[in-house]
């Protein structure tokens, strides 16, 4: 087994793989991230069986926490498999903060949190903000400290899908990308290294100031969201709310009582950015 250890925000990983290539890709893309002494989680990329290590190699995603019926991926998508394995460890094993399936960005010491279903554009929006004057905090998980309510950065590689790939490729010249992976179970995927300040400041927390529920592909509209609806949606977006028990309840009620929330419909990244800036002016 080949091994690579890294730290993303508060969490650290030991990545193990029977194949060198995906680990080398990770090493390159995560070059600026700190190493890890005693990692929080182990992720293993293993051949489905001995033959499949060489013939049509197929990688099972294993580790400390596993899904019983997770489908293996072809080894060309090994980088994606490792990222999925890391997400899975966080989703199932992390208890130090409340995990929201959300993206986040910071400005002026305050955090914007965006959550929504797959296809809502939350990942792309956080990437766009990250190259337009905001500090990117994460595109997959927003971590909320249950004691003081702070948002803790988790700036893993940004996972761009389908049209978002070309949009970002045209967006800025000095961005580093991983390999383009066509026709994965999640569509075309290409990973992007977060901006340098996002990595350098990955332990700098921020107080949540605005929660948005973006929705791509609808006429532009902004709707107030009452705390109870925000609460319900955020429990659905959280992977560990129930396990955190009373402290999860306190953290989430605190969040929805103190931070304004809006639903935001938009048709293009540009439009969304304008609306976000406007809301931020008003509310944050």
């Amino acid at each position: 087994m080949q091994e690579f250890r890294l730290t993303v925000g508060p969490a650290s990983f030991r990545l193990l793989s029977e194949w060198k290539k995906p680990l080398n890709q990770m090493r390159e893309l995560y070059a600026e991230y700190p190493a890890a002494d005693i990692p929080d989680f182990t992720v293993r990329l293993e051949a489905v069986n001995a033959l499949r290590r060489f013939i049509r190699p197929s990688a099972a995603i294993n580790g400390d926490y596993m899904l019983p019926d997770a489908a293996p991926l072809p080894i060309e998508q090994g980088l994606l498999a490792l990222e999925m394995g890391m997400n899975l460890q966080m989703a199932l094993g992390w208890r130090r903060q409340m995990i929201l399936h959300a993206s986040a960005a910071e400005r002026g010491g305050k955090a914007l949190i965006m959550t929504g279903e797959s296809g809502s554009g939350k990942s792309t929006l956080s990437a766009l903000l990250g190259i337009n004057g905001w500090r990117f905090m994460g595109d997959e998980f927003a971590l909320i400290d249950p004691v003081n309510g702070e948002a803790v950065p988790y700036p893993r590689l940004i996972s761009l899908k389908n049209e978002a790939i070309t949009a970002m490729q045209d967006g800025a010249a000095d961005i580093r990308f991983g390999p383009l992976m066509k026709a994965t179970p999640k569509g075309d995927i290409r990973h992007m290294v977060p901006p340098a300040d996002a990595i350098a400041q990955m332990s700098k927390r921020a107080n949540p100031a605005l929660i948005l529920f973006p929705r791509f592909g609808h006429d532009p509209a902004i709707r107030d969201m009452p705390p109870s609806e925000t609460f319900m949606r955020l429990t659905q977006a959280s992977t560990n709310y129930v396990a955190l028990g009373e402290q999860g309840f306190e953290a989430l009620t605190g969040l929805v009582q103190n931070v304004p929330a809006r639903a935001l419909d938009y048709r293009s990244g540009e439009e969304a950015m304008e609306l976000v800036e406007k809301l931020w002016e008003e509310l944050a």
Binding site: P226, S228, F231, T235, V242, G245, E246, F249, T253
Partner: peptide
Amino acid sequence: LDAMTLIYHRASGITHM
């Protein structure tokens, strides 16, 4: 919260709205 009230039940760990 608003028109709704949250109840956290310590024994079960379940939140009711």
